[in-house]
Design a protein around this nucleic acid. Sequence first.
DNA 1: GCAACTACCTACTCTGGAGTAAGGCTACGG
DNA 2: CCGTAGCCTTACTCCAGAGTAGGTAGTTGC
Lengths: 221, 221
Amino acid sequence: MSLAKDRPTTRTKRLPREVRERQILDAAVTVFSQHGYHAASMDEISEVAGISKPMIYAYLGAKEELFAACIHREATRMLTAVVGGIEAGQPPDVQLWHGLRSFFGFVGEYRESWRVLHRQSLTQGGPFTAEVMSMRQRAITLVAAVLMRTGSDEGIGEAASQSGEALAAALVGAGESLADWWLDHPEETAGAIASRLMNLVWLGFGNLVEGKVWRPPPSQK
Amino acid sequence: MSLAKDRPTTRTKRLPREVRERQILDAAVTVFSQHGYHAASMDEISEVAGISKPMIYAYLGAKEELFAACIHREATRMLTAVVGGIEAGQPPDVQLWHGLRSFFGFVGEYRESWRVLHRQSLTQGGPFTAEVMSMRQRAITLVAAVLMRTGSDEGIGEAASQSGEALAAALVGAGESLADWWLDHPEETAGAIASRLMNLVWLGFGNLVEGKVWRPPPSQK
DNA sequence: GCAACTACCTACTCTGGAGTAAGGCTACGG
DNA sequence: CCGTAGCCTTACTCCAGAGTAGGTAGTTGC
């Protein structure tokens, strides 16, 4: 839980704004991830951050803005990690594989970030919904792009090309759900989880039944 | 939106408890689905239900209990619909296909139910989480059972048999996510959506690229 | 007709928690 | 060593909304 690593225990004094903002955001992610947006209180966040409430308002604004800032930071982190894991020159299945690995790696390392992104943020109603929606859309678009590149390279089947975005949505959802499932079954490694999904999505269940298995190419480090 | 069909406009008087409970639950599902658990107010629910607040407390108890009752009713409805759509004698891919059709059919018909089940209920913190978790687990178990029957019938591949539940979780998540996507792209039919997922999950993306398509057997009505 | 019961309402209480007013302390430039 | 700017706190205000007290009006049974 690397977010908590340098959380202040004894109240440190007179730190520069930059540092405080980071501490506040870290605390906010923790608390939001535990209780959800509405049930989280500014008092608790301030306490966890080791600072008084008015500072939060001074630096990050009201509760809604604070939440939006959390979403924004964590989503950017996650997308950066996933995009960074993909190598442009590789064939599409390898790209997808690396993307999945990066994704599950991120979820494993930053559980709180993941919780706040996925579990809390769907609950519509707040204006921050915009922030979440846009991030989700970015993810789907990214996946769709990888899938579609497959299509244009190899002369895609009609069923797939018509529905790239829908399939991407399904895949993203499968990934999210599997990530949640993983939280309750932590004995698996990120690679194993990624591999399961890769097999399902690339070969399909019908092929799995016949014993076919997709494997990453040996070149991978 | 069939839940709203017999909502009272002019305050009707002295109805039997049974009827009122139904009205209250309908109203609660609507309001919870719009605002989420915390943001929904008992005042608004009572207003939508066309009854005063103390009646809600008298009949369905406090807010938490009311929410749990909503989840329970809607989840049961949904699972009943899905299970009812599956015919025991059929081969596994057909069973899966019918299950998916029933699921998306339900989501299309009872959008509010779906919203309250999926979007609102993951936000942990309340004790009602138990209710939701159990329903979700039931769904995953059901799917896993269908998938595993495939395995035992045909001598399953090792990769698939080890991970039935994980694959089921992925499939359920893909379904959920696709259902959400559908809410934003309502021009598709339930059958089309179900078909997309069926193809992805049964054939896999690799096969789709080669132009293969899974089709329901002609026997279907 | 009257007891007992059910359906139902108005009009509160009270608490949690968002957001703020008002000022104190430290550092640093001049 | 004084002013100004930035860091930080205590101690509030205020309101939405959960939950309730206490009472009225039909209805049913005898």
